[in-house]
Design a protein around this nucleic acid. Structure first.
Length: 947
RNA sequence: GCAGGGGUACCCGAGUGGUCAAAGGGGCUGGGUUUAGGUCCCAGUGCGUAGUGCUUCGCAGGUUCAAAUCCUGUUCCCUGCACCA
């Protein structure tokens, strides 16, 4: 083996880290190219919004991704691991309004700053593929896609009632409204009627739902997406209005089997039908009042309403299946925007309708029966909402049907008579992508008085953002720019106006992972070949906050581009990992249930003046409990911070920042360094524990690989950074000092250290004489077969013997009233070993243990008169243990170790460990029974007596 | 109300039938090393005990030779959806 570079005396991260980072850069080893000989692996983190500073969330995100990317490279995959910036969006524009300047300059400056922060962590990103949303070479493809969608009818403009945030000065998608408030600024959202651009995501609703079964997303993310898509299956039923030829109320229901129990129909107060129905009736003003109340309330507030208010609209509808006349109401609990904005009411089988019926004294008719002997005429207290057998049907052929059969029969009847049909209703609406803000992708449309909406011709793309704007915070800046707005119509040449809406920034993040596959392509969004080689993303890591919007939009966009023939994948992300939050302690008042800023630490609660507790809370500026990654790296080095991040919690769990734990990780790094340095200076003395170390290390490697394969990063780091270290310490304690052995081992160990802490790994690799850079090579483990397992069993026996003996010593010294100077170890007689092995054998062969005694007594070893007498007592004890032995312990026992030989070989070590001068070892019965301890001797548990 | 995830020792946290009095880390205690502090190494950290015992994994039951782990009920916490027809 070649002599390696010598190691510094001390672990000095600031000295080694930049050195290796520079080497990685110079040798361009993270630059990925298509290579059809190698299997590809696409590792990706959600690309960040470029604030000017890296925070712990970034560090955690990329420490996870980087470990995966480095491991996959080591496995011989062709890894693509790109990075870029989600750089459009309101923070930069708001900063421009607040401080002056231009969002572009602010964004570029922030990107430069955060990239500098990233660089000290040693992540293995391929910066050759860097992209930024606000780069026109990127967003021009947003515009191009938009035109393609327009051609295919996937994009459209319509006048709609939309969510408006007055602070952000823009409309919002439904998903961007949380509890009736803007997701960004928390201002209450208003409803406005505006012309807006939409994408027809509903076309893909079914596929988005179905494909969830085939992708490896966490179950709660799938649940969230299913909720959001909100599929319900049922029927559309038409109720003609009595006395008004042609006027029909359409209702959607999931329970057509209750059609004969309909006793009224309820419309949302905002339903346009209401006006014509109630016109001229005495309740007209009551309805107007109800509508006014309803429109003033957000959907959220309406959800809070307990009181079911309704107004009879003075007219009747006809049940299409039995011709019955039923009253029409407007009800404040019916949502205008869900389904048809009207409900067929079945008070006997829907609790909400039931309450409304009680309130307004409406008839209740039971048409499903729960139990055979139910009395159908009995008064009900609440609705029976489960499935039941149809009864009381006002037409032939329905009574007796149940569940799906019942539904099917009703739907068939409706379809035959042209009064309804089976139907699937979705909660998801089309994606509203218009935003009335500057810092986003301009929508490539021109408004011409003559020609209407005219798409910008493809050759005129990109539509750039103008510079002649001022950011006042009043209105859409694009409207104030004449160079932007005033254009001539591409079709007729007349004066026309450019569309001033820009696209939701979620458009940018909906396909960036595909652009990464061919990021520097000036002629296409990406080439088919590149996308087909690299897609889809094998491992995607990011925050749970994107479970709905980003992760649904990206799935939709991927499918839409597939249908444009741009690539072949159905799904963008194969496996998703949602990293947990990074928390830190903050003052907390339990009675008030309020977390306070760290400034209040030591003070009484500002609200109740009680004493403040501590509790862990998400790191945030407002609480002031953030920890700066940069200062941590300056203090301890990037490797320590990365080790802490991976070791403090599993990737998906929340983690608490702890200064003492970080310091402990730093100590561990130093320990590894010092041990490695010592190992390099060892001579070549062989010893009996060499084979143990070699075998044990093989086992560690195997365990580590399986942990890494499962992305159990915490378990993997525990093995690579702690267990291997402990093994080496034990080896040393046992007298191991074989330099040749440990230097070979060090080459493998460095490879295990590499994914989490790459800098120290490179350093150890080089010092041990490894060729080139670890980061650049496929895993090259010296993997001999795992040796004889008896080697491990022997050492396990020694270790556990010392643990037992140490415990006994403490007790013994209390008895002999002084320090013990000698220990006498009596190993169990051969027949006890036979007994144990017989027991294990019977157990493993599923022998009925109740009859074990008879079987044992028939064995040769039990034929001796004296032994025969002792067997039942010993068996009683062994029986108890039998089930409790671990496979490892069983293997020790089955190995039928020469306990006396092993202990005699180890006698010096035992003496030192136990702190006694004299160690006597013999078979129980062969020498004096010191202290009467022979009776405690069992296989792997010798009798121990101190003097 | 519905859905999903949780409650493990001083703290964090592993743990899906026997490998469990329960990994690992932090903290704390003791010992060694050191001029000292730090580092480093070793040990201890439910109770008991010259060894096979007792009690404990939110609470209460149950299944089993055996339960932190499986079942039932209950309580508390988190997350999402919510008058969705």
């Amino acid at each position: 083996m070649s002599e390696g570079d010598s190691m510094e005396e001390e672990f000095l991260p600031d000295k080694i880290e930049s050195k290796w980072q520079q080497r990685w850069n110079e040798e361009e080893i993270f630059i990925a190219d298509i290579n059809s000989d190698k299997e590809k692996f696409y590792c990706l983190e959600m690309y960040p919004y470029p604030s000017g500073k890296m925070h712990m969330g970034h560090v955690r995100n990329y420490s996870i991704g980087d470990a995966v990317a480095r491991y996959r490279r080591a496995c011989g995959y062709n890894v693509i691991y790109p990075m870029g910036f989600d750089s459009f969006g309101m923070p930069a524009e708001n900063a421009a309004i607040a401080e002056g300047g231009h969002p572009r300059e602010i964004t570029n400056r922030n990107i430069a700053l955060i990239k500098e922060d990233f660089s000290i962590m040693g992540f293995s990103h391929d910066w050759g593929r860097e992209l930024m949303s606000h780069d026109h070479n990127y967003f021009r493809w947003n515009q191009w896609f938009f035109l393609k969608f327009l051609e295919k009818g996937l994009a459209y403009r319509t006048f709609a009632n939309v969510n408006w945030c007055d602070d952000c000065n823009t409309v919002l998608a439904n998903e961007q409204v949380h509890n009736g408030r803007c997701w960004r600024c928390s201002r209450e959202v208003e409803q406005k009627d505006m012309d807006q651009w939409f994408l027809r995501i509903t076309n893909y609703a079914q596929e988005l739902l179905d494909c969830l079964d085939d992708i490896d997303f966490p179950s709660h993310v799938k649940a969230l997406q299913r909720d959001w898509l909100g599929r319900s299956e049922g029927a559309l039923i038409k109720f003609p209005v009595d006395g008004d030829e042609g006027l029909v109320i359409e209702t959607f229901t999931t329970r057509p089997d209750t059609i004969f129990g309909v006793t009224f129909v309820t419309l949302a107060p905002e339903n346009p039908l209401c006006e014509s129905l109630v016109a001229g009736h005495e309740n007209e003003s009551k309805w107007r009042e109800l509508r006014k109340q309803a429109t003033m309330l957000s959907d959220m507030d309406r959800g809070m309403l307990k009181e079911k208010k309704g107004v009879f609209l003075g007219r009747y509808a006809i049940n299409p299946l039995n011709g019955e006349k039923i009253p029409i109401f407007a009800g404040n609990f019916v949502i205008a925007s869900y389904g048809t904005g009207s409900v067929m009411a079945v008070p006997a089988h829907d609790q909400r309708d039931c309450e409304f019926a009680f309130e307004h004294d409406l008839p209740i008719r039971r048409v499903l029966i729960e139990n055979e002997d139910d009395d159908l005429e009995a008064e009900i207290e609440r609705a029976f909402e489960g499935y039941g057998t149809m009864v009381n049907s006002s037409r032939e052929g329905f009574d007796g049907l149940f569940g799906d059969d019942a539904k099917r029969a009703v739907i068939d009847a409706l379809e035959n008579e042209n009064s309804g049909n089976g139907m699937i209703q979705w909660k998801v609406r089309d994606w509203l992508i218009s935003r009335q803000r500057y810092w986003g992708t301009p929508i490539p449309i021109i408004h011409c008085d003559e020609c209407g909406l005219v798409p910008v011709p493809e050759e005129d793309l990109p539509v750039l953002l103008p510079d002649d704007v001022t950011f006042t915070g009043e209105g859409n800046p694009l409207e104030s720019s004449p160079t932007f707005s005033d254009v001539s119509c591409p079709t007729c040449g007349n004066d026309a106006k450019r569309e001033t809406d820009t696209m939701d920034t979620f458009v940018d993040s909906s396909w960036y992972f595909m652009r990464f596959t061919d990021a520097n392509n000036d002629n296409e969004c990406f080439s088919n070949d590149a996308a087909d080689y690299w897609m889809n993303v094998d491992f995607y890591c990011g925050g749970i906050e994107h479970a709905q919007m980003h992760l649904v939009y990206a799935r939709f966009w991927t499918k839409a581009l597939r249908d444009l023939g741009l690539h072949k994948e159905d799904e963008p992300f194969k496996e998703l990992l949602c990293q947990g939050m990074v928390n830190a302690q903050a003052p907390y008042c339990k009675p008030c249930n309020v977390t306070h800023p760290t400034l209040e630490r030591g003070n009484p609660c500002p609200l109740c003046s009680g004493e403040l507790d501590e509790r862990s809370a998400k790191m945030s500026k407002s609480l002031g409990n953030t920890v700066s990654p940069i200062s941590m790296v300056e203090q301890f080095g990037a490797d320590t911070v990365r080790l802490f991040i991976l070791f403090a919690a599993q990737p998906t769990a929340g983690m608490d920042w702890s200064d003492t734990a970080v310091e402990a990780c730093n100590r561990q790094m130093r320990s590894i360094w010092n041990l490695a340095r010592d190992m390099l200076s060892w001579g070549d003395d062989t010893s009996t524990v060499d084979s143990w170390l070699a075998t044990q290390f093989q086992v560690r490697k195997t365990e580590w690989i399986s942990a890494m394969e499962g992305v159990h990063l915490r378990a993997a780091v525990m093995l690579s950074h702690y267990e291997v270290y402990s093994d080496l310490i034990w080896y040393q304690r046992r007298g191991g000092q074989n330099g040749t052995l440990v230097r070979t081992l060090l080459l493998d160990w460095a490879q295990m250290l590499h994914p989490a802490t790459p800098h120290i790994a490179e350093e150890l690799w080089a010092a041990a004489g490894g060729d080139g850079l670890i980061a650049a090579r496929a895993l090259n483990f010296n993997d001999e077969e795992i040796g004889e397992t008896n080697i491990l069993a022997r050492e396990l026996f020694v270790h556990s013997f010392i643990d037992q003996a140490r415990q006994m010593k403490e007790l013994a010294e209390r008895h002999i009233d002084g320090e013990a100077t000698s220990v006498t170890i009596q190993c169990a007689e051969a027949w006890k070993g036979e007994l144990v092995r017989t027991g294990i054998e019977l157990l493993e062969n599923d022998f009925p243990m109740k009859g074990a005694m008879g079987e044992i007594m028939s064995r040769p070893f039990a034929q001796d008169e004296e032994i025969r007498r002792l067997v039942p007592g010993a068996w009683k004890r062994i029986m108890k243990q039998l089930y409790r032995w671990s496979p490892a312990e069983r293997s020790v026992l089955k190995a039928n170790l020469d306990e006396i030989g092993i202990l005699r070989d180890t006698a010096d070590f035992i003496g030192t460990e136990l702190g006694v001068m004299e160690v006597n070892i013999y078979l129980a019965g062969d020498g004096e029974d010191v202290g009467g301890k022979a009776k405690f001797a069992y296989p792997s548990e010798p009798g121990i007596a101190y003097l």
